[in-house]
Amino acid sequence: MNIVELKNVTRVYTAGDHEMKALDGVDLTLEEGRFIVVLGPSGAGKSTLLNMLGGLDSPTSGTVVVGGKDISTLSNDELAEYRAETVGFVFQSYNLIPTLTVLENVALVKEIATDPLSSHDMLRAVGLEDHMKNFPSELSGGEQQRVSIARALAKNPKILLCDEPTGALDSETGVLVLKLLLKMAREYGKTIIIVTHNQNIAKMADTVIQVKNGKIKSCTDQENPLSADEVDW
């Protein structure tokens, strides 16, 4: 079953007289439950693509259908609902609320999601049961990213969108976080889309999408993706 369908999606940014096409007539179909990696150099349009899927940005033209719903024409409030129900985000910079504890950061989603998972379970699953009462600033980068994964999954979304999730971590921690992401996604049956310029991560993906100059250069399914331990980091 297709979870994502993009039809002729264009996103143009204007600055003064200057127009910049971040996405240029993108057509893309993605299947549910897969681990997808979007690769491309800086400025290729991969983050814009992710923002479109996440409902953080709307296309200038074309349609974005996620889970059978066209999100390109939704109002602000409808987009907020979409983000609350359908997608979970993991950022390079974690984006935790500094004034809330680890547990509260995850439990936060109960305020908005209709079918959230248990915050305690999620934190146990990412191995942070001993740090629930800590504030984000008391944790290491890897730990903070694990909180952010727990938060993203606690909403029980269909898709997990990750923007350079290991970008701010050393490679050892990065691998641990990736493993965790994969394990969680498989366990909870989620579609994962990771945007990165790290070619190694692509080796683990079910599908690899190459983006360049706002266009999809290739979209390849990999028959036998490697596990994290098999990748030469």
């Binding site: 907020a80 985000f89 984006n95 936060l108 305020e111 908005i112 909403k155």
Partner: peptide, 16 residues
């Protein structure tokens, strides 16, 4: 600003 952007990304409505 950043905290509110995060809340917004997670799915909080403007009114909330």
């Amino acid at each position: 600003y950043r905290e509110m952007a995060t809340l917004k990304v997670i799915g909080f409505k403007d009114k909330k």
